[in-house]
């Protein structure tokens, strides 16, 4: 009984169950299937169907996971073995780590910090380092190019993404995610500063290599980029990592722009968490849908979008926030 109680302690429940590991895993299973289903529908076909047909093959991902588990993971002879094997683990771990600082209700969080937004944003920047390392350790030209591309992308989306997030913090006069969410009981951030919202959405997909920014692993150019040499379950890990990262960023995005758990009928952590999860899920699904619409940009075009469009836009959105504050729009709960 005590163990069950312990499980529901926020500092255990949040990282391990929701919105942490278990929820991330569930989302992973559903979203990969859904991505294939969405693409299939737009493309005049059915997509995965035969693994549990009554529900349209919903457990296809489990079948794939089993296949990955039993597939032989091959380590190239020329690869840097330690780095080759460690990077997927770090990549996945670091993609999911920021979740610990995400609150799921006004009163339910693993820990509350004055700067939780900064903590989350800072932690999300760690994962790409390992993608670059992965490209290097594979000792494959395509992997190397993929790693370098990831590196270029990181420097072009990181700063505008931070600025977009900060512009919302300025607006709410807080860096605490709980306060930010609570400030949106009335108007959501997306209405107050739509520019920052659009910008951040774009950068979020860019940072997780969603179409049209699926550049580091562009199949027709560099096979699978940094992941070229990976097989078996370690490939499963790296493939999951970018979805998990998108999920975490979507949670943050929901809190920053989509009111977090608001509107909240009753102050129950479960209801609040469900609200937040649905919003994040829709954002991830939108990212999956874009695959069916867009081809991919070239790396130089993506970089110039980062610096020439997203960066000025993020500066403008900071200015908008400052103007709103000076104009006396007071939304901050104090």
């Amino acid at each position: 009984m005590d163990i069950l109680k312990l499980l529901f302690e926020p500092y255990i429940f949040i990282p391990l169950v929701f919105p942490g590991l278990v929820a991330a895993f569930l989302l992973l299973l559903i979203i990969i299937w859904l991505e294939r289903k969405i693409a299939a529908k737009v493309q005049l076909r059915y997509g995965p169907l035969y693994v549990f047909k009554p529900l349209g093959g919903v457990i296809q991902t489990i079948a794939d996971l089993l296949r990955y588990l039993f597939q032989e993971p091959i380590v190239p002879r020329e690869a840097d073995k330690l780095a080759f094997l460690m990077t997927p683990v770090f990549l996945f771990g670091l993609a999911y780590l920021p979740v610990v600082a995400v609150p799921i209700s006004p009163t339910y969080y693993a820990f509350r910090s004055d700067v939780s937004l900064l903590i989350v944003m800072a932690l999300t920047t760690l994962a790409p380092i390992f993608t670059v390392l992965m490209g290097w350790s594979s000792n494959n030209k395509f992997s190397l190019i993929g790693g370098v591309r990831e590196g270029y992308l990181v420097i072009s989306y990181e700063i505008p993404m931070f600025l977009s997030a900060i512009s919302m913090a300025i607006l709410y006069k807080s860096l605490d995610l709980v306060e930010i969410a609570e400030a949106q009981k009335g108007l959501w951030g997306v209405i107050l500063n739509p520019l920052a919202a659009i910008n951040m959405l774009l950068l979020m997909y860019m940072s997780t290599s969603k179409f049209p920014f699926e550049i580091p692993e562009a199949e027709s150019e560099i096979v699978a980029g940094p992941y070229t040499e990976y097989s078996g379950i370690i490939y499963g890990l790296v493939m999951g990592a970018s979805y998990v990262k998108l999920y975490v960023l979507s949670l943050v995005y929901s809190i920053l722009f989509l009111g977090g758990w608001n509107p909240l009928p009753i102050n129950d952590p479960m209801v609040a968490g469900a609200m937040l999860f649905v919003k994040a899920f829709l954002l991830v699904a939108l990212g999956a849908f874009l695959r069916a619409v867009y081809p991919r940009f070239r790396i130089d075009q993506a970089i110039s979008i980062g610096w020439k469009i997203a960066f000025p836009l993020s500066l403008i959105s900071v200015v908008i926030s400052l103007l709103l504050i000076m104009g006396g729009v007071s939304l901050v709960v104090k």
Binding site: A39, V42, Q43, L44, R45, F211, P212, E214, A218, E219, S220, R291, A292, V293, Y294, P295, R296
Partner: peptide, 11 residues
């Protein structure tokens, strides 16, 4: 599909 649009390919 060479420039990344699987939809164009399938269509």
């Amino acid at each position: 599909v060479m420039i990344g649009s699987s939809t164009a390919y399938m269509w």
